[in-house]
Design a protein around this nucleic acid. Structure first.
Lengths: 144, 144
DNA sequence: TATTGTTATACTCTATAACTATA
DNA sequence: TATAGTTATAGAGTATAACAATA
């Protein structure tokens, strides 16, 4: 067999993720956000969370650490937590318009950074990469 | 502009890396290895390390935590640490034949798992993905 | 003086357990 | 009894400081 130099996938993905996170950090910092705060805003951009617990699960964060995080975002006026009338234990979490605006702004800057990052690839490899990412991520979320 | 549903890259890579690491864990466990131990063996498979410090840098691990790790691998007969005659402070770290054999065995099992994982992709997307990974990983290591 | 390997210490992040209020 | 939110505590993982030996 010919020795093919395919890298180990876990290693390759980890390195790329780490690089991209490092590249996002200054963008987030310029807007006064931490990584986890941005993760919360991004998840809420898909729709309000019916409970904090559901939100924690959606972003693979544990519920105890989520609390100070939400308190900070609420104090900054980026999210709102309103008691669910149907179940007074639960609190519905959603973006304020200010939070939605900030998230969109940051997402656009990150997107620009990503486009620069992918610019060196041939078109076919880039589309293959993006299609593969979408396909594989669908795969692993359907049966975790 | 049409809303394109491209995922954020950092998120996509992180999820895939986490999934793959979870998939590797039982393989490593079956051979009595931790993730970091396997990382060390893999790095040494590329060639001996002239110093422990260089090894730590190569795998992005800090030198203090590397020490108990190497002691464990040495006790298991998987690596050897020999003082460098030219610089008696330094210790050259290399795989024993047993360590090399174990590493190759584990790598083969991981490779099989990866092939199964990628099996659902179309051929063009799979090759695009692999070429893109190689290209991008080269990019980020040349100017970190 | 600077560097390798090492030990000891502090710090951060993460997970577990326990409490309250509702259901 | 079970669950949502919260608080307090313990644990793993990581980084920093300090030391001996050698350069």
């Amino acid at each position: 067999m010919a020795t093919d130099d395919r890298p180990e996938l876990a290693d390759a993905f980890t390195r790329l993720a780490r690089w991209l996170i490092d590249a996002e950090r200054p963008i987030l910092q310029a807007h006064g956000l931490t990584m986890w705060q941005y993760v919360v805003l991004s998840e809420l951009a898909r729709g309000p969370a019916q409970t904090q617990l559901a939100l924690a699960r959606a972003i693979s964060h544990d519920k105890t650490r989520l609390i100070p995080l939400l308190e900070g975002l609420e104090a900054d006026g980026l999210i709102a937590r309103t008691p669910d009338p149907a179940d007074r234990r639960a609190r519905i979490v959603e973006l304020t318009s200010r939070g939605a605006g900030l998230r969109a702004e940051v997402a656009a800057e990150i997107r620009t950074m990503e486009d620069d990052f992918l610019a060196s690839l041939r078109a076919t490899d880039r589309t293959g990469l993006l299609k593969a990412l979408k396909e594989l991520n669908g795969l692993i979320t359907t049966f975790p």
